[in-house]
Design a binder for these strands. Structure first.
Lengths: 130, 130, 130, 130
DNA sequence: GTGGTCTAGACCACC
DNA sequence: GTGGTCTAGACCACG
């Protein structure tokens, strides 16, 4: 599983981690029942503070995506896939909506916004993360 | 000039103010040489603390968009239009880029993203601001 | 009499006016008994708000440099020359002291400061005002 | 690192703080990569409101001298030394230029100004800060 | 713990 | 009247 933390993302790191983990589950890269990396290991891998990973994992437990397995770590829950697939689009839409509503507020009309989106899509086409 | 402050925007209020003022200038709603509303007046209009407006105005001075007219107030600079028009798209693109790059990261391909954008565009078509 | 108002001087306009008037008197360009320009006229000449000139004149009256001549305007007092010549150096020294003390604070030693002063003296040698 | 705030400096406190920090960096007293004192600590040390220190630090971020280390504090950037050394002389020269141009305006010639500077240099030689 | 945001209110400088 | 500075203190986000 690959995590890409982007400091200029606008989202806090713990959100980036939890969201990407949800995306991975929705996408099938991480299956129900599997153990996720330990806090320490993931923290080292993405080079962030363990507290940050812990917070992401805590949020994922609250969302019912992860559950503790006594003494072994955290496991993807049985219904995590449903949750994550359902949430995936809404998370993304919500964020898009914020950006697009500001476009409208700045006076752009729908075709202009679509044009701008296409420009960004091209910019991010090849190496599409940052 | 209309200001819409959205507490759940993600952006701090002073940023919303300065960005919207840039958009208004880029759009021609506010012209070079005009005085902007006084700190106190705008603060009252958008129902925020004068300090918050003052910070937005200060940021706009740093960006060269406003200039002080001693004892009279703040004036839109001569080259503000250039600055704002140049910045408008980049500010919006930067925000779109964050959202779109996360879409890619979540496994969506370009057509899927475009589809999602269209859905959001429809959602925000009529009462599109917040 | 020539006035040069420099917005980037650091000093408020009314101070620039009153100080330059003192310098003019110290220098003999303006003599005891002479009437100074009216508030309106000087305001127009240097393109500032009449209130600003009025404030400068008020300060000069407080300092005993100008005195009102009923119905005619303001006149340079008899002892103005003494006052202005005495003040001239101290006003200039006080200002230099502020700049030089910051140089020391920044870690420059005396020869380095002298070198810096020489550089500024060269820069301002030809057209020496701004 | 030593900070000397002088209320009668003419410069606002936050400027005095940011300028002295730049001088400290230019001088090597503060190195790239080091964490600067926390807002709260410095505020207490120089006995000003934390907001005032925060503003100085924010200005230093805008100038690219400091960068945030999320949750840890503010760090001197890698290129801060370049920036600060380049700025140091220009900041000081700018202030000297204002004082010296006024000397010229008052009718002093170059040797007279140099003489006046020497007088000030002597006055400020021993306990030279305020 | 860190910095950032925001509010409330006082005071000053300038015009 | 204008903007600018500073203080005091609350709250939040982040690690």
């Amino acid at each position: 599983m690959l995590f890409r933390i982007d400091a200029s993302n606008g989202l806090p790191i713990y959100d980036q981690i939890s969201r990407q983990m949800k995306f991975a589950i929705a996408h099938g890269a991480l299956r129900s029942g599997e153990l996720v990396p330990s806090v320490r290991e993931l923290a080292q891998r993405v080079a962030v503070n363990p507290n940050t990973v812990a917070r992401a994992y805590r949020d994922l437990q609250i969302d019912g995506v992860l559950e503790p397995l006594r003494g072994e770590g955290l496991r993807v829950t049985a219904h995590a896939v449903d949750v994550c697939q359902r949430e995936r689009l809404s998370l993304l839409k919500e964020r898009l909506r914020g950006a697009i509503s500001e476009c409208r507020l700045s006076g752009l009309d729908t075709p202009q916004i679509r044009e701008l989106v296409d420009a960004v899509l091209q910019d991010t086409a090849v190496n599409g993360t940052s």
